[in-house]
């Protein structure tokens, strides 16, 4: 597919999404769509570190929590307007990411994953036990919603931000930095041997992905109006990983598709209750074995085959 056709496809997707509040009469689906768009931001961030750089981070939900709590708490204690706290949330998250990224990135591969998972556990334990600040497991309710809680308005806010963050991810991916990140995924030692300080780029990807998560967290808090530590546990970090894998890692469209899947799929399976976990796990295993390139990868392959045939005929 050439560049202009691709932009046209993105425009169409954007337009279709923008019409959702008018089309969806059952507001439950609008509610899920807002969550899915928040997860688009989350997954785009996860994709930068996981898909492009090749480092599986399991602290995404923890950073989402830091974003959610910082936006909420700054608003509560300093009476900042919502837009200001939302803008501050990714910055606070970035500070935490710098502090955790440095030790985490000293190890590679699976061990990086485990260390980040430990950080997610630590974040939850601190959120639960530092009650003076976070109100502990009880959580914080009545977090202010913008525009008097209008769901339609919030949908458009989240849609704009999801589109902007997707565009930013595409920019990063196509830049020189993106190329180096991809090179790190292919062969980190080689990158080091040609005199590039790989650690700087890894830390950059890690911090940027944390900022994405922080923004998603702030959007979540002001949408649901309630947060507690449980929402930001390891299970949600795994969802972010799942979104990237299912959609297609290292692509821009992948996280968008993956985010909608991880929000809507469990809702579709809500009837299945305890089979849900088994089914979910099975999908993950089968998808990785048989479809490691994700849905976007499969589509690209199909389109490629199709257009080749057309050219031949």
């Amino acid at each position: 597919m050439n560049r202009s056709l691709q932009s046209l496809a993105w425009l169409l997707v954007f337009a279709a999404l923008a019409m959702l509040p008018q089309v969806l009469t059952v507001k439950y689906y609008l509610h899920l769509s807002i969550l899915a768009l928040i997860w688009v931001i989350m997954a785009q961030g996860q994709n930068l570190i996981q898909g492009y750089t090749g480092y599986v981070s399991i602290v995404g939900a923890g950073f989402m929590g830091i974003g959610a709590y910082s936006s909420t708490l700054i608003g509560m204690h300093f009476q900042w307007p919502i837009w200001a706290t939302m803008a501050a949330a990714p910055l606070v998250t970035a500070l935490f990411a710098l502090a955790t990224g440095y030790p985490s990135l000293r190890v590679k591969g699976h061990y990086f994953a485990i260390v980040t998972l430990a950080f997610n556990l630590i974040i939850v334990i601190v959120l639960v036990n530092y009650k003076e600040l976070t109100n502990g497991e009880t959580g914080i309710s009545n977090i202010p919603k913008p525009w008097g809680g209008s769901r339609d308005a919030y949908f458009y806010l989240v849609l704009m931000l999801a589109a902007a963050m997707t565009a930013l991810a595409a920019l990063i991916a196509r830049s020189r930095v993106g190329e180096i990140l991809l090179a790190i995924r292919q062969n980190e030692d080689l990158v080091g041997s040609i005199g590039i300080a790989a650690w700087k780029y890894k830390l950059f990807a890690f911090v940027i992905s944390a900022m994405y998560a922080g923004l998603a967290g702030a959007l979540y808090a002001h949408f649901q109006s309630f947060i507690n530590p449980e929402i930001f546990g390891v299970a949600q970090s795994l969802d972010a990983i799942l979104a990237v894998i299912l959609g297609g890692s290292g692509t821009i469209a992948g996280p968008v598709i993956g985010a909608f899947l991880v929000v809507f799929l469990p809702e579709m399976l809500r009837f299945a209750d305890s089979f849900r976990l088994i089914l979910y796990g099975l999908i993950l295993v089968l998808a990785t074995i048989f479809m490691p390139i994700g849905i976007v990868g499969v589509c690209k392959a199909l389109i490629g085959r199709f257009s080749r045939k057309e050219a031949a005929s």
């Binding site: 591969g109 699976h110 979910y280 993950l284 990785t288 074995i289």
Partner: peptide, 30 residues
């Protein structure tokens, strides 16, 4: 589960491991 992804990127083995965890946890529960 692991043999099919032996020669793929190490991330894939890890994701398979996560999926397996969910499955076994679900089976234990069931």
């Amino acid at each position: 589960a692991y043999r099919p992804v032996r020669h793929a990127n190490h991330i894939n083995a890890f994701i398979v491991a996560l999926g397996l965890t969910m499955m076994v946890e679900g089976i234990n529960l069931q």
